[in-house]
Simulated assay, not measured.
Amino acid sequence: MELDDAYANVPYIPGGAQYPARWTVAAEAFRARLLDERRAEIGIAYGQSARQAMDLFHPKGAARGLCVFVHGGYWLRFDRSFWSHLAEGPLGRGWAVAMPSYDLCPEVRIADITRQVARAVTVAAERIEGPVALAGHSAGGHLVARMAVAGVLPSDVAARLHHVMPISPVSDLRPLLETSMNEQLRLDLATAEAESPVLMRPLPVPVTVWVGSGERPAFLDQARWLAEAWGAGHEVAGGRHHFDVIEALDDPDSRMTAQLLG
């Protein structure tokens, strides 16, 4: 359809098709190390379906707070197991890290996924005390932005929000009506508007929208739209594309990790 190419990333990233395999190798090695150190809890259920589960990684010593990372994949693919290594940065700053999976379209709708992620954040926050920071990539960026809107998280959890970082988010779902993936997303104008953070008012919490300078114009637009609508911080990472923009999360000293956690 008309906007399929605009929202396609793999053809425009050198070696783009190889990234999932690379993520898997790094994530598996990270989980093995954390399990050996007894700092990983794998497959904590937060809902009834098999995919409603999370992994929880613990820092050395008492946690300063909870960081939740929500994966992307256009609400259609991937799960938490691809991204475990991105917990390295927050762990190095003393934060516990939760990484949830969620049910995928077309079995569920995007609004259902929003509710699932809110439940995952709530369950993780029941286990870890202190402030809560949220980061999500692509569709995950959409989902953490939704958590920053009143009425999505329970009020006691929302009151603990420290920082929300949508990374390369899809903040306005209306353009997706003009893509072939909508056959699986099953959006119409009303449901696209109802799930578009750019059309919503955020909670009074710090928000930084992050995007790579080398991303597709559609994602640069999506990030800018959200930052402008919310009056949020807007970081454009030089030389980064849609797949490597998240790599800074594995470094405790990166600008991204520091901005998210302080």
Rank of each mutant, 00 (worst) to 15 (best):
V211Q: 04
F219S: 03
Q184G: 06
L199F: 13
A227E: 03
S180Y: 02
L173Y: 02
E183S: 14
D221S: 13
R224T: 10
G212H: 04
G212I: 04
T191Y: 05
P204I: 09
L187F: 10
G214D: 15
D221H: 15
F219A: 06
D221E: 15
A223C: 09
L187T: 07
L220S: 08
E193K: 12
A229L: 04
M165R: 05
V209W: 05
A229V: 03
V207Y: 01
W210M: 04
N182H: 02
E215W: 14
M165W: 02
L226K: 00
P166C: 10
D172H: 14
E178D: 13
E193V: 14
H162Q: 07
R224P: 02
W210A: 01
P202C: 01
S213E: 15
T191V: 09
V207T: 04
E215V: 09
T191E: 12
L203N: 08
W210H: 00
V170K: 10
R216C: 03
T191N: 05
A190G: 06
E228Y: 06
T179K: 03
T191Q: 08
V164K: 06
L176F: 08
E215M: 10
S196T: 01
R216E: 11
A192N: 04
F219E: 00
L199M: 12
E193C: 13
T179V: 10
H162Y: 09
H162W: 07
S171R: 06
H163D: 09
P206W: 07
E178V: 00
R186S: 12
R174P: 01
S171L: 11
R216H: 09
N182C: 07
L185P: 00
P204Q: 07
A227V: 12
T208S: 09
L220G: 14
L226S: 01
E183M: 03
L177I: 04
M165C: 13
P197W: 01
T179A: 08
E193T: 12
A223N: 10
P206D: 01
E228K: 15
L161E: 13
V205K: 12
A218L: 02
E228T: 14
V205H: 15
H163R: 15
V209P: 04
P169I: 12
V211K: 03
D221M: 08
P166I: 02
V207E: 04
S180W: 01
V164W: 04
V170N: 14
P217K: 11
D188K: 06
M200N: 01
D221V: 14
L161W: 10
M181N: 14
P204W: 06
E183H: 09
M165P: 02
S168D: 10
V164N: 04
G212D: 02
R186W: 11
G214V: 01
N182D: 05
G212L: 07
G214Y: 07
Q184T: 11
V207W: 04
I167G: 02
A223K: 05
E183Y: 06
T179P: 07
L185K: 00
P169L: 05
L173M: 13
S213R: 14
L161S: 11
S168E: 09
E193W: 03
L199E: 05
V198T: 06
P217N: 05
T179G: 11
L187Q: 03
P175M: 13
R201Q: 15
A223F: 08
M200W: 00
E215K: 08
P166A: 11
V205W: 15
S213D: 08
W210D: 01
N182F: 10
T208A: 13
R174S: 05
M181P: 07
S180L: 02
P217E: 03
